[in-house]
Design a protein around this nucleic acid. Structure first.
Lengths: 113, 113
DNA sequence: GTTTTATATAGTAAAAACACTATATTCTCT
DNA sequence: AGAGAATATAGTGTTTTTACTATATAAAAC
């Protein structure tokens, strides 16, 4: 399979870079993955993923600001959800890559440390 | 279309985070995209993408260390190429997302600045 | 052997990201 | 009104990233 040849536009590159960089944090990947099956409250994330509550809020704020998650308030709770399919696609992409690597179909070597 | 439900393993998350974060830089996305149709020398990248040579080398070093690109030497030249299909897939993913967003099929709003 | 060309590396100042503690805000319930 | 729960925000020290200039290295050409 050959790679898509669509040219990526300069404006989009800025956005994409921002999103990729933001997703490039283990905790945030975990959060995004956890949100994959539907909206969750801050508390759920905090308890389920065993992260400090302010850390969770901070990650969610960053991801909200960058268009990765959306939220809605219900009383004192905030429900967060993935904002768009781009995020789903990247998750798919990662899960897929993981499979291929596990299979030995791909290799994925890091050279340092 | 529903998202892939494969669970992402903790070890893989570390790698994925590293790669995504590394790709989350406009210059590096441009370089990776430029490498999409085959290996290129540092000088080609430098001239074609109009980036300072040490910047290019620096980006390439980071990407090499993180398993995103590979290289081979030929005389005084170094040819760099994408290291594996994970990178291709992410590129595809981005190009795809760009299309959908351009179409208006998705929205992608950034909330800040 | 000296000069050019191509690339890498060092050094560094500025900016951004991170992790964590403490505190504020806002609802809800009584 | 007061207490408790859920979440956000402030403040801060530390680490990482980034951008850039200057310099080193190594092969090629003359």
């Amino acid at each position: 399979m050959v790679s898509n040849q669509t040219k990526i536009s300069p404006e989009f590159i800025q956005n994409a870079a921002r999103v990729l960089k933001t997703l490039g944090h283990p905790d945030r990947i975990k959060i995004v993955e956890y949100l994959d099956d539907g909206e969750k409250t801050v508390g759920q994330i905090h308890r389920e993923l065993e992260m400090l509550q302010p850390i969770v809020s901070q990650h969610l704020k960053v991801m909200f600001d960058r268009g990765i998650v959306i939220n809605r308030q219900e009383g004192t709770r905030f429900f967060y959800a993935l904002a768009n399919e781009f995020i789903f696609k990247i998750l798919d992409c990662m899960a897929d890559a993981q499979e291929k690597i596990r299979n030995g179909a791909w290799t994925f070597e890091s050279q340092e440390n």
